Amino acid sequence: MTDWSDPRLPSAQTSSPRQLKRMSRSFAGVGVGIPPERLRQIAMGGSATDDELVDVSFALTATQLLSEKRRSKRGRAQRHAVRGFILVVAILIAINVLLCLGLMLFVLTQHTTPY
């Protein structure tokens, strides 16, 4: 798991307006409504109330947790798909072997004399 003790906003110099909009939307997805402009001000070190800092910290932690949940769910789905693919391939190989054995027995019976 990830270290949850100190979630931080990306610095204002490394964050583009598009990234801040995306972050604001993801924050809204966990119940924290902070506009992108306000996130930029907070990231630049502007004054922020304790409530805003708690909201940002919660939103960062919650979005990171949701991201890890999605990632683990995707991993389980991929493992499930690989197992299914292996099963289908094994069944096709088994059917192929049975058909080859049947054909071989048919060919061998054609070469024997009827008497």
Rank of each mutant, 00 (worst) to 15 (best):
L98C: 12
V88C: 06
P7C: 01
E68H: 07
A94R: 06
Q13W: 03
A81Q: 10
V32S: 00
E52I: 07
V97G: 06
P17T: 01
I86W: 08
P10A: 01
V54A: 15
H80R: 11
P10M: 05
Q64L: 14
N96H: 05
I86L: 10
F85Q: 14
V88S: 04
S24N: 08
Q41S: 05
E68M: 05
Q110W: 13
L103W: 12
F106S: 11
R74E: 15
Q64Y: 11
A81W: 08
V88R: 02
V54C: 14
Q13S: 07
R79H: 10
S67W: 14
S47P: 14
F27C: 04
S26C: 06
S72F: 12
G45H: 07
G29I: 04
Q19L: 05
Y115M: 12
R71D: 15
T63V: 15
R18V: 03
L66I: 14
A90E: 06
I95E: 10
M1D: 00
Q19S: 05
L60N: 04
S5Y: 06
Q78H: 11
A81S: 09
R83L: 14
R22P: 02
V56S: 03
R79F: 05
S57W: 06
R40D: 04
V30F: 10
V89I: 12
F106G: 10
T112N: 11
K73A: 14
R25Y: 08
A77K: 11
G84W: 04
M1A: 00
A28E: 13
L105Q: 09
T112D: 14
M1S: 00
S67N: 14
T63C: 09
D50G: 13
H80S: 12
S72M: 14
M104V: 13
D55C: 04
R70G: 13
L92H: 07
L99T: 01
G33I: 11
M1P: 00
F85R: 08
L87I: 05
H80N: 12
Q41V: 11
I93P: 02
K21Y: 02
D3K: 00
W4S: 10
T61Q: 12
A94T: 09
M44F: 07
I86E: 12
A12V: 04
L108D: 11
S24L: 04
A81P: 03
G75N: 15
P35N: 05
M44Q: 12
V107I: 14
G46R: 08
R22M: 07
A43Y: 02
R83G: 11
L105H: 05
G75S: 15
A12N: 03
E68V: 00
P35L: 02
T113Q: 15
A48G: 05
D55P: 01
R25L: 08
S5D: 08
L105G: 06
T2K: 00
L98K: 09
N96S: 09
V56L: 02
T2R: 00
R18D: 04
G45F: 06
S15V: 01
L101S: 11
S24Q: 08
Q19F: 03
F106H: 10
A12H: 06
T2N: 00
H80M: 08
